[in-house]
């Protein structure tokens, strides 16, 4: 019994050890991705700015042992192990993230990520860049036309995508739906893939507040082959859920100064003060009357 317990402990510890050491496998179709631009001094400079802002706090300064003490440890960009990554592998790891390494898909534009890669490559003397095709996007060529319908009863959004040139439906295009909020775009449903007629349906949340009249600004993004997205629809739909706004200063006891005090409070306060003085004066008046009567007798 005891030995089996120890065995279980050892196995579970082994499990966590293995988990920590799992190599980060990049899918084959993403590995070979190449930068659509030639790395230059300008891209390196822009990349360095982005690197210093977003990467330094964990990866440290390249070539210096100031990486954050995390498990697994963030690699030094100047190290050999780090530089073994292909450009496509770098791009995948930065966009997707894993564990403590955040996903930068929403934070950085695809050019920014390529600029960062061009900057970290300056720490590899043997590196020679291979430039990819100018448009590394979805593989779907030509201009697309799209139509969006909001089915208010079923809380669904229907999107249809066709080619502009021959009006044929676009099959297999990956789309995501977002709603505009104050500081960013809120993802509403999971990624959907268009069917044989170029159509797909998103579930729209029942309880998402719109603005004062219930309008919501939504957009539909198409996934590119490199994991980034581009917007194909940006429109406003009319929903029935208006945002509930109320004045935070109503019904609050913040009557520290006269200008903020409500009339009922001022009247009741003044009334009670007057009443108190009134009672005092009435008693004095009665006492005076008693005294006068006493003087007469």
């Amino acid at each position: 019994m005891k030995s089996s317990f120890i065995l279980i402990v050892i196995l579970s510890l082994l499990g966590t050890y293995v988990k920590a050491q799992t190599p980060w496998v990049v899918p084959d179709d993403r590995k070979g991705l190449l930068a659509p631009l030639k790395f230059s001094d300008e891209t390196r400079k822009l990349g360095q700015e982005v690197f210093n802002k977003t990467c330094v706090s964990c990866h440290g300064h390249p070539g210096q042992p100031d990486q954050a003490k995390l498990v697994p440890a963030p690699k030094d960009p100047a190290s050999k192990e780090y530089q073994q990554n292909l450009d496509g592998e770098f791009f995948y790891k930065i966009t997707e993230g894993r564990g403590l390494m955040p996903s930068f898909k929403k934070m950085l534009k695809s050019e920014d990520i390529w600029n960062v890669i061009s900057y970290v490559r300056t720490f590899n003397k043997e590196y020679v860049q291979k430039v990819g095709a100018a448009d590394s996007s979805s593989g779907i060529t030509g201009k697309l036309l799209s139509k969006l319908d909001y089915l208010i009863k079923d809380n669904k959004i229907e999107v249809k995508v066709i080619q502009q040139s021959n009006k044929m439906p676009v099959i297999g295009v990956k789309l995501s739906l977002y709603a505009k909020r104050n500081f960013g775009w809120l993802p509403l449903d999971e990624m959907r893939i268009s069917n044989a007629s170029g159509k797909l349906t998103f579930n729209y949340p029942k309880d998402l507040p719109g603005d004062k009249v219930g309008d919501v600004n939504i957009k539909v993004n198409m996934a590119n082959a490199d994991g980034t997205e581009r917007t194909i629809i940006d429109t406003i739909i009319k929903t029935e859920i208006k945002c509930s706004q109320y004045n935070l200063l109503d019904n609050r006891a913040m009557w520290n100064v006269r200008s903020k005090a409500p009339i009922w409070l001022m009247l009741s306060y003044c009334g009670s003060v007057l009443a108190a003085w009134g009672v005092i004066f009435y008693i004095i008046w009665i006492l005076l009357q008693i005294r006068n009567k006493g003087a007469k007798v």
Partner: peptide
């Protein structure tokens, strides 16, 4: 914040955005 600790947003819109990852959530 470099570690994604803070979310900030409008309660009326029922959404907050992470300051680091710029991810918006309900």
């Amino acid at each position: 914040c470099p570690n994604g600790v803070y979310y900030f947003g409008d309660k009326n819109e029922d959404a907050v955005t992470n300051g680091t990852t710029k991810e918006t959530v309900r």
